[in-house]
Design a protein around this nucleic acid. Structure first.
Length: 553
RNA sequence: GGCUCGUUGGUGAAAUGGUUAACACAUUGCCCUCUCAAGGCAACAUUCAUGGGUUCAAAUCCCAUACGAGUCACCA
């Protein structure tokens, strides 16, 4: 029985050949140096920060080279597929502005190299597997999971390399007739690749990030098609898809590094050109309990999942910057030198990517984010804050919609200056630093953070005297001049030098005096500029807050 | 255990054989100041996991050791 006959027995309905597919997927017509890249997640979990890094790098690579970025859904593991994962991927790519040029979503295919969902490419894979069987580079294998387990145990016990290779690959030596008989009997089988590699021989592989690496050749007969659903395994689908879709650069996690010898042999078996590889380093995390360095975990680390940044309200570009800073440490320098350029113009260099994993630093993200938020205009910040609140905090949304002008005015305090305030690292922290501006947020159980002066009587005296002279029309200079005068008249030092020399002559200094006003008006001893706050509140509400103080303190 | 990679400060890191080991974040101190934020100025690795070697010269090259990571599925 010939290989061809065996192949026909296994795939009787596959009539297209590899050559047919080569014609269907012609070379892409792109300018010199254009990179064709892909983001190829499997929908078995929600997109995490590592995926995000990979997607962003792909996007940058494609944009900066005038190439193509496509999205491929690797859903060959149907048992582990998670509901909603695909939607979330599309949402995140759109949200961060790194959407692919070619993709397939909701039944619609954008691009000429699809389908972009692997489960829809079954016939293609089968044609390629059929070819491999025909040329003697693949065969059906009937090893049961019990037998596999036995082999593994034996190998482990006798300290041999684990895997189906050499004499352990029982069915690679079985005649086609016998194989055919088993198939006709309805026995379960996988298709395995027939490796011709020699573990004792080395080959040198050049990874764009990791550099030259020497590997032993692959000699394992890996499964390329599963028995149950007849779908290909990752390794096989990678070779077929990235060949037909003309991928030039594969960006993938470092965990794939050790599969390179296999992929190398697979590409060789078809005589296909291997794409270039950029194996990105892992994102690690220091475990807070044990102090150990480990791979960032979706379960333990909320910041691992991309939900986190959106819920917290980090600006999109801040997250992108943080991710690219991990990817290429010179990104930061480039960013400071090119503050207005879009991130995708950054000349990403795989070589500059650290080969070892990096700890994801939330402090750094916070810093980047604070800078972004401080550079927005008050109304721009307000719009973003509002959009965030609409989705994640209905209480805040209600308040800031109702008090739009006050909110913008508050956000504008010390903003339109050369070095604006950097109060907020994300939208979700704004309210905790501005709640006191909203009358509705003043509950019955207020905590007044008075400092030096705590006597109610004195506080009332100060406030009533002050409200008598307060004039909304005053400029900040006049406003402060008046405060100083009043303070002096009530025996608070307006001259700090004199206060330092003779502290006992005074009830307190000017700071103690303004603290009284600040705390009565906001309950807090630390707030942005008091003049601006008073301007926003207006005299009437100031009066009201004094009454609240009188009742509740 | 096999294979592969890595190890520079609290964090991300630069430096690719040659003066005091960049820079950013974080931290701390001082200054400014109505508080805070911001800003300004400082401080923070006598040393690049450890040991040996090559060299006039090593964080940089070589070897060994230790530690860490990834991988070894009909998961991707």
């Amino acid at each position: 029985m010939t290989n061809q006959e065996l192949a026909d027995l296994i795939f009787p309905n596959i009539t297209k050949t590899i050559a047919d597919y080569e014609l269907e997927y012609p070379a892409r017509n792109l300018p010199e140096g254009a990179k064709v890249v892909r983001f190829a997640p499997s929908p078995t979990g929600f997109m995490h920060i590592g995926n995000m890094m990979s997607a962003t790098i792909n996007y940058v690579l494609a944009r900066s080279s005038k190439g193509v970025f496509f999205l491929r859904n690797e859903d060959t593991d149907q048992a582990r597929t998670v509901e909603g994962a695909v939607d979330f991927i599309h949402h995140i790519l759109n949200y961060y502005g790194i959407m692919a040029d070619e993709y397939e979503y909701n039944g619609e295919i954008i691009g000429n190299y699809g389908p972009y969902i692997q489960s829809e490419r079954m016939e293609i894979y089968h044609a390629f597997i059929k070819h491999l069987i025909t040329i003697g580079r693949a065969y059906p294998c009937f090893l049961t999971s019990e037998e596999l387990e036995e082999i593994r145990e034996y190998q482990a016990k006798s300290k041999k390399r684990i895997g189906i290779y050499g004499r352990y690959a029982k069915y690679r030596y079985t005649s086609n007739e016998e194989l055919a008989k088993k198939i006709q009997n309805g026995e379960k089988y996988v298709i395995r690749f027939r490796s011709e590699g020699d573990f004792n021989k080395k080959f040198v592989f050049e990874d764009l990030t990791q550099g030259k690496i020497e590997f032993p050749e692959n000699d394992i007969d890996v499964p390329i098609m599963k028995s149950e659903n007849k779908l290909p395994t990752y390794h096989f689908a990678h070779v077929v898809d990235d060949h037909l879709m003309h991928t030039t650069h594969v960006v993938r996690g470092n965990e794939w590094m050790s599969s390179v010898p296999l992929h190398y042999e697979l590409f060789k078996a078809f005589n296909f050109k291997m794409p270039k590889y950029i194996h990105t380093s892992l994102i690690l995390k220091k475990d807070e309990e044990t102090g150990a360095i480990r791979k960032i975990s979706k379960r333990k680390d909320p910041e691992a999942l991309m939900f986190y940044y959106e819920e917290k309200g980090y600006p999109v570009l801040a997250v992108i910057d943080a991710v690219l800073t991990i990817a290429n440490s010179n990104y930061e320098e480039w960013r400071t030198n090119n503050p207005d350029k879009p991130f995708y113009e950054f000349p990403f260099s795989p070589k500059k990517m650290s080969p070892s994993g990096a700890l994801f630093d939330l402090d750094k993200l916070n810093n980047i984010s604070k800078n972004y938020l401080s550079k927005m205009s008050a109304s721009e910040l307000y719009e973003n804050y509002l959009a965030w609140a609409k989705k994640y905090d209905s209480h805040v949304y209600e308040l800031i919609s109702r008090y739009k002008d006050d909110t913008i005015a508050f956000l504008n305090i010390e903003r339109e200056i050369k070095k604006p305030r950097k109060d907020y690292e994300n939208y979700s922290t704004i309210f905790s630093k501005s709640w006191y501006m909203y009358d509705e947020a003043w509950s019955k159980d207020l905590t007044y953070e008075f400092a030096k002066i705590t006597a109610k009587e004195e506080i009332l005296k100060v406030m009533t005297s002050y409200l008598k002279i307060y004039d909304e029309a005053d400029s900040q200079d006049i406003w402060f001049q008046k405060i100083k005068e009043l303070a002096s008249s009530m025996n608070y030092a307006s001259d700090m030098k004199d206060y330092k020399e003779h502290p006992d002559n005074y009830k307190g200094d000017i700071a103690d005096f303004t603290t009284i006003m600040r705390v009565v008006l906001t309950t807090l001893k630390m707030t942005p500029n008091l003049y601006d706050i008073m301007q926003i509140l207006g005299k009437e509400r100031m009066q009201k807050r004094l009454e609240i103080f009188e009742e509740s303190y």
